[in-house]
Design a protein around this nucleic acid. Structure first.
Lengths: 222, 222
DNA sequence: CGAGAAGCGGATACATCTTATCCATTTCAG
DNA sequence: CTGAAATGGATAAGATGTATCCGCTTCTCG
């Protein structure tokens, strides 16, 4: 029997050529808009930007989550690469500095990626890339501390908070002054580096607290 | 003739005693909620929190703006005081440090105040207090630079951005870990202080740019 | 006390902005 | 050609805001 008449998108057979083309357009539009303005962008706008109707979007993707997955596949892979590369640095601080700089760049250039990477699971995503980055970051921090380059008291959660701060500023300033965020990233990195006369930081977060803050900060996924 | 039948709130004569009491309740509720969660809080919620109906709120206050004014009068005065006090410090850096710390505290404790103070006019407010603070801040920065305590390249707009960052973090973290914001304020202040081996910051903002960023960042006033 | 003005609550109108569905019409492909 | 696939956009349905309206209640003052 032939595939019959299901409504499920993307079944066994290939899409009709025009449908394939539209699907690509949709994914591209989603990538652009999500990257520029975060996951809060509505699908109506994505559809319009792709030059199709909303109905077409929902024909191809069961819901918004599915589209998000399709739009973020590549950027997530890039994140993974960056982590691997930075993890191989000789001096941990250099790797950390590199990693933070690159990640920030990636997240600022793709605020949708930011929303899932820092969202603390608010947008349910089973991504190994994010875990890998977190692990690399942790290792680098430990090594940098052992090598005496890290200000006493700095913890992994500090990095998460700083990423939120920097990308949040970037989100609000990018259309006015792209690249401004680097100024503040620099200030904050300076604040994390060991140097004479600095007192240790105290009062760091628990894991639950960080998670909770992330969820609150993240765009409401409803 | 008697006052006739206008609908304008708060005319010549005094309010009825119960009405006066309700007005106070409303202002208090607004102060609490705006302080806690910013000006985005809806008037329905304010009314409910005050134990009155929405109608009562709109009977007393022509619109949301009027209520905001009533709720923020005191906090704005406090801002003014803080500025004056800090401006009198011997060493400018000390005054700056004090001022930043106190302002941050004030804005974090009152996110509604934050919205108008950093909102760059997004919530139209003709407040001398805000101008006074800005002027004091400018003077202190100039003096601190002359006294060699300020990192090269730091400008007044940096302070505004830092206030946004810190208070934004506070907004998202206060219910999880009140006081966490101080950790990052400290990091950023350290980043602004002169110390050996620091390179000058470049690429600072124009006034228009700062204004534009503030407007974008501010809660949409619609 | 009692009448009438003042005040009250909250349902309701209206606006905006989401996600998601439905179906008459168009387009493709064999 | 013809039928299945695909389309688009009106529309449902649900949130969340501001602001209004009006029947009912509560003060206040003679």
């Amino acid at each position: 029997m032939t595939p019959a008449s299901t409504d499920e998108p993307a079944r066994s057979g290939a899409l009709r050529r025009d449908a394939e083309r539209n699907r690509d357009r949709i994914v591209h539009a989603a990538q652009e808009l999500f990257a520029e303005r975060g996951l809060a962008v509505g699908l109506n706008e994505v559809a319009h930007h792709a030059g199709v109707g909303v109905g077409t979007v929902y024909r191809r993707f069961a819901d918004k989550d599915e589209l998000i997955h399709a739009a973020l596949e590549e950027p997530l892979a890039k994140l993974s690469q960056v982590a691997q590369h930075a993890g191989e640095a000789e001096r941990a601080w250099d790797g950390l500095s590199l990693l933070l700089g690159r990640i920030t760049e990636l997240l600022v250039d793709n605020l949708g990626l930011r929303d899932v990477a820092l969202g603390g699971g608010a947008w349910q995503f089973g991504s190994t890339a994010i875990e890998r980055v977190a692990q690399t970051m942790k290792d680098l921090l430990d090594r940098a501390a052992a090598e005496g380059d890290l200000r006493d008291g700095v913890v992994g959660d500090d990095v998460v908070m700083i990423l939120w701060l920097v990308t949040d500023l970037a989100q609000h300033s990018v259309q006015v002054h792209p690249g401004l965020y680097r100024r503040y990233l620099e200030i904050m990195l300076d604040g994390l580096r060991a140097s004479p006369g600095r007192t240790p930081l105290v009062e760091h977060l628990t894991e639950q607290q960080t998670q909770a803050i992330c969820r609150r900060w993240a765009v409401a996924p409803g």
